[in-house]
């Protein structure tokens, strides 16, 4: 058992009358690659949005490394070490790949406040970005504007931008959606590798059950804003309730 990096207590969210999180309690352990699954409308996106700050928390508390974060603005949560990637590509479209990665890297060290320095002189950030480019495999297109990349490359960049802030907790919302098999393997291998290195705790939201069961060490099943199942992939596969409402015949 590792440390608890995230503790969610009684998190509740309503969209009008629709409940998307119902007094949710959830702990995430540091270093354990966790997947969150659930049918459409189960509240997976809402949960991520609440944790990362895209949605205001209506009630309940979220502790990150023991610190209450549910009222903090997005960028402060990012500074503390929580980041995310998006389901729909969400990058800086007209900037180059390099610049896309430089922004979070510079922001992390507070160097985006430097208004009179030359960007060429930011050697440390440039080195970090270079590593990152190698890591996600975009070194060859570093000077290409992001909006002319292939869809798969844009997804890689999406993940890269999220990684650039060196988060200790990273939510990936369907990181492989729209990728071809080669890219998919590459991204998954990356995630596995990075997770092993242990600096970042990954939480995946995925539809693809193959990915979920091959990659994760722990699977959390959401259903109508509630936790339906929680355990190792094996346990979840054999959980009768889960099979009933969600997995159905697909396993």
């Amino acid at each position: 058992m590792g440390d608890l990096i995230l503790q969610i207590r009684k998190l509740t969210n309503f969209f009008g009358m629709v409940c998307t999180a119902k007094e949710l309690d959830l702990d995430i352990e540091a270093g354990v690659l966790t997947s969150i699954i659930g049918p459409n409308g189960a509240g997976k996106s809402t949960l991520i949005n609440l944790i990362t700050g895209n949605l205001p928390v209506q009630s309940g508390s979220i502790l990150f490394k023991g610190r209450e974060i549910s009222r903090l603005p997005i960028h402060q949560r990012v500074r503390l070490g929580i980041c995310r990637s998006f389901q729909i590509v969400n990058i800086f479209p007209e900037l180059t790949v390099l610049e896309n990665l430089l922004i979070p890297t510079l922001a992390l060290s507070g160097r985006t406040r430097r208004f009179f320095a030359k960007i060429e002189g930011e050697d440390r950030a440039r080195d970090q970005v270079k590593n990152l480019l190698e890591k996600v495999g975009l070194a060859g297109v570093k000077d290409t504007p992001a909006n002319v990349l292939s869809h798969g490359d844009q997804r890689l960049l999406e993940v890269g931008v999220a990684l650039a802030v060196e988060p200790s907790l990273l939510f990936l919302d369907e990181p492989t959606a729209g990728m071809n098999p080669v890219e998919r393997v590459k991204v998954l291998e990356n995630i596995r590798q990075l997770s092993r290195e242990g600096q970042t705790t990954f939480v995946l939201v995925e539809h693809d059950m193959d990915i979920v069961f091959s990659l994760s060490e722990r699977v959390v099943v959401l259903h109508r804003g509630d936790i339906l199942g929680d355990g190792t992939p094996e346990e979840i596969k054999n959980n009768v309730q889960v099979r009933e409402v969600y997995l159905g015949d697909s396993v």
Binding site: H75, L95, I103
Partner: peptide
């Protein structure tokens, strides 16, 4: 051409992503 300038273009291109890059 400074890091600030780059951050500003990031905000122009995608304010939400800029928040998630850690920019206030």
């Amino acid at each position: 051409l400074s890091p600030l300038g780059l951050a500003l273009s990031g905000i122009r291109e995608n304010a939400n992503r800029a928040e998630f890059a850690g920019l206030s």
